Amino acid sequence: MEAPLYSYDNAIRETAWVELDVDLDRDGHRDRLAADIIRPSEPVKAWRRKHPGRATPTPRAG
């Protein structure tokens, strides 16, 4: 396992809502999906800009 590159405790946490084209619960409104975004508050290191980020789907996280 790799050592963390950034502090998780100081991370910036945001939630982005995405409206879907479906109405699975049949309430008459299009459903929305919440995407929780956790990103480092520290400046991005130059070498890290060249590498893609990592997305980890976690249903009911937190």
Rank of each mutant, 00 (worst) to 15 (best):
W17L: 15
L24M: 14
D9A: 07
S41Q: 14
G62R: 01
L20W: 04
Y6C: 00
T58M: 15
L5S: 07
P43A: 12
S41F: 12
T15M: 08
R30E: 10
L24V: 12
A16Y: 11
G28K: 04
R60S: 12
A16P: 04
R32S: 13
P59T: 08
A11W: 00
A11I: 01
S7W: 07
A3K: 06
D31V: 07
H51C: 01
P59I: 05
D25M: 05
Y8V: 02
R49I: 04
T56V: 15
E19N: 09
R39L: 09
E19G: 04
P4A: 05
I38L: 05
P59D: 10
P43R: 09
R26D: 06
A16I: 15
G53H: 05
L33N: 02
G28P: 04
R13L: 01
T58V: 15
P52Q: 11
R32A: 09
D23Q: 12
R32N: 08
M1P: 09
Y8L: 03
T58N: 14
V44F: 08
D27Y: 07
A3R: 05
A35K: 13
E2C: 03
D25R: 13
A35I: 15
I37R: 08
T56W: 08
K50T: 01
V18H: 11
P40N: 14
D25T: 15
G62S: 04
G62K: 01
R54T: 15
R30L: 15
D31W: 02
Y6Q: 03
A11L: 03
G28I: 10
E42F: 06
